[in-house]
Design a protein around this nucleic acid. Sequence first.
DNA 1: GGAACTTCTGAAACGTCTCTGAAGGCCCCG
DNA 2: CGGGGCCTTCAGAGACGTTTCAGAAGTTCC
Lengths: 249, 249
Amino acid sequence: MDTPGPETSAAAPSLLRADGTPPRVLVVDDEPDLTEVLSGVLRYEGWRVRTAADGASALAVARDFCPDAVVLDWMLPDMDGLRVLRELRAALEDVCVLFLTARDAVEDRIAGITAGGDDYVTKPFSLEEVLARLRGLLRRAGMAREPSADRLVVGDLVMDEEAHEVTRGGEAIELSKTEFELLRFLMRNPRRVLSKAQILDRVWSYDFGGQAHVVELYISYLRKKIDAGRPPLIRTVRGVGYVLKPDAQ
Amino acid sequence: MDTPGPETSAAAPSLLRADGTPPRVLVVDDEPDLTEVLSGVLRYEGWRVRTAADGASALAVARDFCPDAVVLDWMLPDMDGLRVLRELRAALEDVCVLFLTARDAVEDRIAGITAGGDDYVTKPFSLEEVLARLRGLLRRAGMAREPSADRLVVGDLVMDEEAHEVTRGGEAIELSKTEFELLRFLMRNPRRVLSKAQILDRVWSYDFGGQAHVVELYISYLRKKIDAGRPPLIRTVRGVGYVLKPDAQ
DNA sequence: GGAACTTCTGAAACGTCTCTGAAGGCCCCG
DNA sequence: CGGGGCCTTCAGAGACGTTTCAGAAGTTCC
């Protein structure tokens, strides 16, 4: 694994608690690799992070740490997710929970539990997906700093994350799910060169074995839809990666 | 599968007390799962929430908390619903009560009791149903902020929640109960992509074990009735969910 | 008790998306 | 000017998500 990916919020966090301190998140999973990567990226994005490997220690840490959000594996060695959720709720007033779960397992049991402000993501997931969900969770819980935090703008290119809508110069652009996530990552890091490895790490699932070639392919898809005929926003930096920036060099 | 429970009122609560603070609700049920989910959604919708698991503690909390509304299970371990209702009324001046009851049991007795301004819902219910009833209760009790709070409009599609009426371009549209609730949820979250899991959580009963396939089916029913021949309001966002939005673009 | 309607299941057809492989173009360097 | 990387694009196969149909089970109403 390499350095944590860059992100707008590292420079200017879009979310803050009422008291002005960075938001706190507790990551609970029994795979060290996963908590490792997740907490690395989250820290880089300006979150205060703590981790736990099982339900019991998660609850202990939660009581002490008072996180705003919890990223919680549904399958833990000592307790099932439902019980952890219930005890978390009992211990903390307003905590958002983002579940991590296997695609095939217990999906229906989770439905019904996420009814509040909670959310869940199925494994394998991309980091961008988790980050986007987490941001959404906190935004909806009233921790947004700016009301328009879900509106990304680069030049005349505009993305509405909630509506899953992209326009350039007012004209709507249809994107597939992967194209959308790639563009979101680019738009969250404007004027910053992103390597293919970084993009692969963020936009594709962590267990994706594929080559960097996919990134090139999807960049070309995006160009066709976004830059077609217009001044290009997506630039190639040969041997390094790609940048998204408005024409002013 | 995916995203959390958005709701218009989270961003801009449609109900407020006279003093500008959020409305207060007390949830009384002896099933922790149920109070869990209910209080989660209600909190998310901008209510102040307290819970109780039996009649005695419900009364104790009520005296201290002074809720505007009470969601009350008709079958509690220690007292029957009638007695709790009577004591609530004695303790609090203007409180609305929403009963939760089994479909087969005592329906006629409850019907007589709710004659006041109260209401009831039979188990199993959908969250949307409970939320709608609660909103109705408070609105009728004079806590509505906007007079048109029960009129949802998206493009030329109009829903009158109270009258259970839907029109598009002035033309009346007949919907079944499930179709109506699905459309209501969509109309309460216009221009926001809702995942099938979210929709399932809100519109179908909490004990519904079914798959997301039902959502797709009912979306297709709605399209047939609402979008037939006209510019489509219901859009599919592949791999993510569905959005309701006027053709704008 | 039957008719109309609603709700949900299962299966098949369809379309789109995602990724692989291969060919060709561009750029930089020798 | 030629060669080797790197990048872009095309074409296609398979996987996946969505829509639709048909029908069974349950409900409501007369």
